[in-house]
Design a protein around this nucleic acid. Structure first.
Lengths: 206, 206
DNA sequence: GCCCGTATGTTAACAGCGTTAAGTTAGTGA
DNA sequence: TCACTAACTTAACGCTGTTAACATACGGGC
């Protein structure tokens, strides 16, 4: 009587096929250039079939970003588990975040650069443990370590974390959207951003 | 024989009327929620009329952003002309930039957060003196002053400017797209970002 | 063994979008 | 008066995300 199981398996399989097709187009062309019809073409189903597996386009592409950002979480967790100077650890984590964003510009854009906040939707913000926010948590824990060890002049870990996030998000998103700007050099400005932010926390702003 | 002139005047008038209508919708709903047809409705012309005055939607909304960002340039130029400690001047400029972005989220988004870089289009990047870039120039000049007066450990003014830009862009864009995030406080994190970046430049990264 | 209900997928359509080609109208200059 | 041009409109193309209505096939209960 494994019929139910076979069906469920097939269903999972098609769901994954949709995800794969969508992901491929998404990586190549980005959110606004992937249409439900193009995805459907690729898997040789009708466009409406997709709606049996995903509520709408946003949810579909959100799933893709979720998968991808999980990899960032893994990378960060490996770094954070290592011993040694928390400041060096923090810097490596920040660089990893930035590099991840540059490797996955469309995912990064969809996750962190897309909508202007519509009305507050508790549904969405009740789950702050999305992989994106998980990445933020890794950083926050590392900042706690730095403060605990007296490395920072600033004592408010939350404030310090948010400040750092601003910095790394800034350079990541600018390099994504303004790749043609006459940067002094991608690596150079990435490194400078990280070094400057951390130095600022060490020295204490004001 | 002032007919030509009257016609030209009327033409300018309608152009401005389009800009005003578009701007109003734009401020309210943002780029992707303003349609040519909605603009046309508002001024009681047919949608195609707009194309007699603007090449396409992008150019129309670019004009709007241009106008708005000119105001930022003005604000910044007033600040930069004042005497006194260049670091204080710089900080005031950075804060002004951020506040401007938060006051005009849709303009800011369209100008600095929108496209993934398509193929290099020299047409667009031959004019780096757009108001957006003008704002950047103000900051750069101020950074030069700081370095000239030996206030910064970092000596590369271009690198320092780009690093600062990353920081202020980061907090501006995050507050725009993630207004619901549990920030420790908007003003607080803005101030912290500016202070931390500047302190980092003063102390010298590494 | 038949029938019903459900799961799965399709077709057709709606309402919108940016944009273009073709057509209309009014008014000026010759 | 005629021809030309500038200003504007109508109609259409080819997209978009999404929904409602319809088709089909298949397993469970009688």
């Amino acid at each position: 009587m494994g019929v139910r199981e076979r069906r469920a398996r097939e269903k999972r399989y098609l769901r994954q096929e949709i995800l794969d097709a969508a992901s491929e187009l998404f990586v190549k062309d980005g959110f606004e250039n992937v249409s439900m019809r193009r995805i459907a073409d690729r898997i040789e189903y009708s466009p409406t079939t997709i709606y049996l597996y995903f509520k709408d386009k946003a949810e579909l592409l959100e799933s893709i970003c979720y998968e991808t950002f999980s990899k960032l979480s893994q990378r960060l967790s490996r770094i954070m588990d290592q011993p040694g100077d928390p400041i060096e650890r923090l810097k490596r984590g920040l660089i990893t975040y930035i590099e991840f964003g540059l490797e996955n510009p469309h995912h990064y854009r969809s996750t962190f650069m897309m909508p202007i906040p519509e009305e507050f939707d508790p549904e969405k913000y009740a789950k702050p443990d999305s992989p994106g926010m998980q990445a933020f948590d890794f950083m926050r824990r590392c900042v706690y370590d730095c403060i605990a060890q007296g490395k920072f002049k600033i004592k408010d870990a939350e404030l310090a974390s948010q400040t750092l996030w601003a910095g790394i998000h800034g350079i990541t998103s600018l390099l994504i959207t303004h790749g043609h700007f006459p940067w002094v050099g991608r690596e150079k400005v990435v490194q400078s951003t990280v070094d400057t932010m951390v130095a600022g926390l060490v020295a204490g702003g004001k």
